[in-house]
Design a protein around this nucleic acid. Structure first.
Lengths: 99, 99
DNA sequence: TCATTATTTCGGTAATTAACGAAATACAGA
DNA sequence: TCTGTATTTCGTTAATTACCGAAATAATGA
């Protein structure tokens, strides 16, 4: 999970994931959208693949990248974890401030 | 939001937040829990403060750190955003796989 | 096999970051 | 004002990272 936060700490990598939200794309298509060299992007792809945030599938000469939503769901649980165990702290009555 | 992911990309900073989940702590108390120099921790505190992930309040010679849950909630929304806009993608019937 | 297209690896540079200890600052109390 | 405690700032070093272009690899089709 440590690595997932690290992967998301890069603006460029978040842009890649954002592109993949709407549809699967090849490395080249992603490169056309972002103003970053292809070799640099390849490095970002490696980081995203290492965390399983993206999954690849080769189709002939191109490689298709797609978002792996299950890892994002795990991330979601980790962020929720940052909020849990709050019950033991004093609650000054600020719960549900307005409906 | 970019900065929040960056703040969370550090293991040490996540440890700090984890400690603050259960109760507010002073810089010194946090330093006692983690095996990192106080000056190093001070740098981490600056990062966490810059993103509003923690809030400080001086009490005499000590400074109390507390978790700012509202920023975590914003983060939660951002992670959910990584999942949204998925509706337009083909769904191969894998929704609600069980139940 | 050769040429073409797509992608990655390699080598190098500049910027950022975490870490440390020492010195500086902030506050409380004698 | 002086002392002690708490925390931050400063100066430095080592490690990591993003970036680029050139070269290498992979796959296709002629």
């Amino acid at each position: 999970m440590s690595d997932v936060f690290n992967a998301l700490s890069s603006q460029t990598r978040r842009q890649i994931l954002s592109l993949l939200k709407s549809r699967d794309m090849t490395a080249g298509e992603i490169a056309d959208e972002l103003s970053v060299g292809k070799s640099t992007l390849s490095g970002h792809f490696n980081v995203l693949k290492a965390t399983d945030l993206v999954v690849t599938e080769r189709q002939g000469t191109t490689i298709n990248y797609s978002l792996n939503t299950s890892v994002v769901e795990d991330l979601l649980a980790a962020v929720v974890g940052l909020l849990s165990s709050q019950e033991e702290k004093e609650t000054k009555g600020e719960n549900d401030p307005a409906i």
